[in-house]
Design a protein around this nucleic acid. Structure first.
Length: 158
DNA sequence: GCCAACGTTGGC
DNA sequence: GCCAACGTTGGC
């Protein structure tokens, strides 16, 4: 079982949107980056767990956890000219883009902000901290997972 | 809104 | 296959 970090813009799809989805499950689609695609297609396994990260917002942060519930499925939005994720060059008979089903696991009592992660000595190896990293799906090490989840479970200071 | 850091495209 | 130009991401 592996750990991952998924980025999402909360205006687009937040941890609350996942929590209130039917069966608290949603298809994760719209990934149009080959490195992320390769993770989806070749490495993500049902049961793998996810740090759910909010990007491009006031407080970029890990806000909860989720779990992978399917193997890679073709992302049909690539074939829909109406979709913002339409890819004119993708071939129906040789799909280029994939997604997976993910299920809600938890919402943190306290989001773990990028600002905090950047200054935590235990988290300096995270992909997220690697300068300029923009990957929307990233592997997370076991100890990084444990640390983030422990931080997220902490109560807000009084 | 700015801009650094990447990723992708396409001419050669 | 190189690399310049262009596009995108995402923090600030």
């Amino acid at each position: 079982m592996k750990y991952w970090l998924f980025k999402s813009e909360p205006d687009d799809f937040s941890i609350d949107d996942l929590a209130t989805s039917a069966n608290q499950t949603s298809f994760w689609f719209g990934i149009r980056n080959y490195q992320a695609r390769n993770f989806i297609r070749d490495e993500l396994q049902p049961g793998d767990q996810i740090l759910f990260y909010h990007s491009s917002c006031a407080v970029p942060a890990v806000v909860g956890t989720a779990v992978i519930k399917s193997t890679a499925q073709v992302d049909n939005t690539a074939f829909d000219p109406q979709s913002p994720y339409f890819d004119a060059k993708s071939d129906l008979h040789k799909p280029r883009w994939f997604g997976v089903d993910i299920g809600f696991l938890s919402k943190f009592a306290q989001p773990v902000s990028l600002r905090f992660i950047k200054q935590d000595p235990q988290l300096q190896q995270m992909y997220l901290v690697a300068k300029g990293n923009r990957l929307s799906i990233q592997p997370v090490a076991d100890d990084e997972w444990q640390r983030i989840v422990a931080l997220g479970a902490k109560q807000q200071p009084a």
